[in-house]
Design a binder for these strands. Structure first.
Lengths: 339, 339
DNA sequence: CTGTTAGCGCGTTCAT
DNA sequence: ATGAACGCGCTAACAG
């Protein structure tokens, strides 16, 4: 309950508090015997330095704030794995808060992180405005995915969603499909819009007219995918392939198709976006546009670390590790168009 | 960069630091005009109280440590949702660390949390020993899932895994299946062992001899489920139903069966354990033993909060909200045995 | 009602 | 090499 302090250690070890501090932080040479005495005292009292006090003194909390939207989003969690990996051994610990796609809550959470004096903030997804981003960055360095801004204290990284949308659709076209549906992601989300653009672009460049009836709204989640398929089938508009805005949508679509007596890939080919770990295990395994989610997490974290250490090196860090590009991972949910 | 302090506010508002503090914490009556002056200064300087300093003073960090094994485990994340819900509006924020099923790392992380002066610790899964649990609890109150210990500063909650295993198997038996396989969870994990016990018990009470050839090792993950099915099929031992140690195993099994040309539920019935949100969307949707994961998260968090506030009320809290029991959720992965 | 004073636990001068 | 003294930002006790 009552925790030991440096003074307790000092008393037990028969030295002064500063000596204890010196030993613990390794900031100066100390006599071997005293070091041993202190180390024993630390063990005996099960002493843990109070990080709060340390932070107050040093101005560093060794904590990084991470804003995500849902704690249970497989996408964010995969990215978080990368973040965790990059932070390993650095002494920094992430503290994750979620905004639930609610702009006000996002901002509240961000302010909370600042109150906690995190040394930096990582925004995985969200719709904080550029304006807010810059304002907040006066208090703490920020690295954000899904933005296009690079100031001294804000860095961002963006997936080329339009290209991905193009690639997915192109892949389906190359398989001979011409009636290709698209399940859009969240209505006002940037990547969702970009992927739709890519889809249209691929269609156009293949000389196929864009048909609004083949585009249905999803929500980046399983439910949306399932409902979208239902709607699509009900509309009577024939289609032989579907490009889903992300893998989760694809899982829902898989179920929706089954419920309508359609098999994948026999009746309908399906392609997703992201390549979540689970996509190897969906039934059937999902063909998808692989995005380096994990690597992005690593990169974001490293960039933030660079920003924190001092803006000098951060540029070089950014250059030195380029992210892998988008690629198509062909699995069993797609096949050439027949008949 | 340089953050404003109470003194800055005091200076700008023309009052003393304590008055600022009084207004911000609402700990005493203050003249209306000064309140306004302070509030304006706060806005003007974009002031955020330094939680580090606050903690140092009050001895509370308003932070709860949560130990999980993997950041991307859907099970833990579902429970975490419950925790988040219970913490809403309490001012407490969870900080999540992961142990990766590595005992040493678990302990390290736990100590890290203590160094950060979390006000309490929540252990969602893991294999910290009773011994360690009690030792750590001297420094901070702990609530742990999957343990059987209740001291003044440690509370725990346990799923009745054996009963669940029994229920699952019984359900399959009632459908007429007699050759029922079981994919076990992690080898040395308590719940995994209990579920296996339940499975055997149900078999025995139905007068069916236990056949070791029908029990294969999994790992609580999709991979394990898939591999287990492979192994099972390769062994040549016929079976018409499978009880999977958890839903994730079930998803893998679903794929494994498909890969072996077996359909669910036509050829093989499949039942899982947990009822993860995704089980509604698996292909086909998974019949499973529903465990109140979310509610458990809520309960764990509330219990911990009770422990923190003062051990007096914590008992009543524990009594007043009983958790829902285990139930079978019948979906499309099971059907009566035929032929 | 309000300002002054002290101290939470630590790291870091500054002397010695 | 080591101890004493100070201050990080804040709140609480004590005067007034």
């Amino acid at each position: 309950m009552k925790k030991a302090t440096v003074y307790d250690i000092a008393r037990v070890a028969g030295v002064s508090a500063s000596t204890v501090s010196r030993i613990l932080t390794g900031s100066a040479k100390v006599a071997e015997e005293k070091r041993i005495a202190v180390e024993n005292a630390v063990k005996e009292l099960d002493y843990r330095p109070n990080l709060m006090a340390q932070s107050l003194k040093t101005g560093q909390s060794m904590t990084l704030g991470v804003l995500t939207q849902y704690l249970d989003s497989p996408f964010s969690n995969e990215m978080l794995r990368g973040v965790e990996k990059a932070l390993e051994g650095t002494g920094y610990v992430p503290i994750v808060v979620s905004g639930h796609w609610n702009p006000q809550q996002e901002l509240d959470r961000l302010r909370l992180l600042i109150a906690r004096r995190v040394d930096g903030i990582l925004i995985l997804t969200g719709h904080v405005s550029q304006q807010n981003l810059i304002e907040l960055s006066q208090q703490v360095p920020i690295v954000a995915a899904g933005h296009n801004i690079n100031t001294e204290r804000v860095r961002s990284y963006n997936v080329n969603s339009r290209l991905g949308g193009y690639m997915a659709t192109r892949y389906l076209l190359d398989l001979g499909h011409t009636q290709i549906a698209h399940i859009v992601g969240l209505a006002d989300q940037k990547d969702a819009i970009e992927r739709l653009h890519g889809y249209r672009q691929a269609l156009t460049s293949a000389g196929i007219a864009f048909d609004p009836a083949l585009v249905v709204q999803g929500d980046f989640c399983e439910v949306g995918g399932r409902d979208a398929i239902k709607q699509l089938v009900a509309s009577g508009r024939p289609f032989s392939a579907v490009f889903c805005a992300n893998d989760q949508t694809g899982y829902g679509a898989l179920l929706g198709l089954r419920e309508n007596g359609l098999s994948v890939p026999e009746d309908v080919s399906l392609i997703g976006f992201d390549d979540l770990p689970f996509s190897t295990f969906s039934n059937p395994p999902l063909t998808t546009v692989k995005q380096p989610i994990y690597e992005t997490g690593v990169k974001l974290a490293k960039t933030l670390l660079g920003l924190i250490e001092g803006s000098e090196e951060s540029d070089s860090i950014e250059l030195q590790d380029e992210l892998p590009e988008l690629t198509i991972v062909a699995r069993q949910s797609t096949r050439p168009f027949v008949e």
